[in-house]
Amino acid sequence: MQIIFEYDEVAQSDRLEAMAKEKLEKLSNKYDMVIRADVFFKEENTSSDETGKICNIRLSLPGPRLFAESSEENFVKSIGESVDNLERQLRKQKEKMNH
């Protein structure tokens, strides 16, 4: 699986990339239909301390693309939430393909 990282007004981080890559590779091993992942990091000014660090992930696979977005207090939580959301979507997609 190919993983592309993009940053929107956020400094590039090897640590974040490694963490996202590890989680996405686990998904890819479990769901071999995943071809590519585009990961976007951006920061948003919000009035809440619990949001503002946004991680968007778009997965390419046969059929429709899957997309998840999460805004949390830090990027680590945002990555986790987005990957969890994508795993739910992949599970549903796989069930549809098996029927």
Rank of each mutant, 00 (worst) to 15 (best):
K53Y: 05
S70T: 00
L90G: 04
S28C: 11
S60L: 07
R15A: 15
P62S: 08
A18I: 08
P62C: 13
S60G: 02
F40V: 14
M33F: 09
D8R: 15
P64G: 02
I4W: 01
N85Y: 10
L66T: 01
E73Q: 07
F75Y: 14
Y7H: 06
H99Q: 13
V10F: 10
F75T: 04
M19L: 15
R58W: 03
K77G: 06
L27Y: 02
E72S: 08
L59M: 05
D49C: 06
I54V: 15
E87H: 12
L27T: 02
L24D: 00
E87F: 06
L59A: 01
L66N: 00
N74G: 03
S70P: 01
L90M: 09
I79C: 06
L16Y: 06
R58Q: 15
F41I: 05
Y31R: 05
V76S: 08
P62W: 12
K77V: 03
E9S: 08
K26Q: 13
R58V: 14
E81I: 08
E43Q: 15
E87T: 09
V34S: 00
E95H: 14
Q93F: 14
I3C: 07
S78R: 01
Q12F: 06
K26T: 09
D84V: 04
F67R: 11
R36P: 00
L16E: 02
D32V: 08
L61I: 14
E50K: 14
N56A: 12
R88H: 04
I3G: 07
S71I: 02
L86C: 03
S78L: 03
K94R: 11
P62V: 09
C55Y: 02
D49S: 13
A11L: 08
F75V: 07
L27F: 04
N85Q: 14
E6M: 06
Q12L: 10
S60N: 06
H99T: 11
A20E: 02
G52S: 01
V10E: 05
N29K: 15
H99P: 05
N56H: 12
E73K: 10
G63F: 07
M97A: 15
T46M: 11
G63V: 06
T51G: 00
G52C: 02
A18F: 08
D84L: 11
A68R: 04
D14I: 10
E9V: 01
E69F: 05
Q89H: 09
K30H: 03
P62R: 12
K21Y: 03
A20C: 11
Q12W: 06
I3N: 05
A68H: 03
L90E: 03
K92W: 09
L27R: 01
V10R: 09
K94Q: 11
R88Q: 09
S48P: 02
G80E: 14
P62H: 12
E69R: 14
L66V: 05
Q93M: 11
G80V: 06
V83I: 10
K42T: 13
R65G: 10
S60F: 08
E17Y: 02
L61S: 07
L59V: 03
E72F: 03
L24I: 10
V76T: 07
E25W: 09
F67M: 13
D49L: 13
I35L: 11
Q89D: 08
K21W: 00
S47T: 13
N56L: 08
R88A: 06
K26D: 10
I57Y: 01
V76L: 10
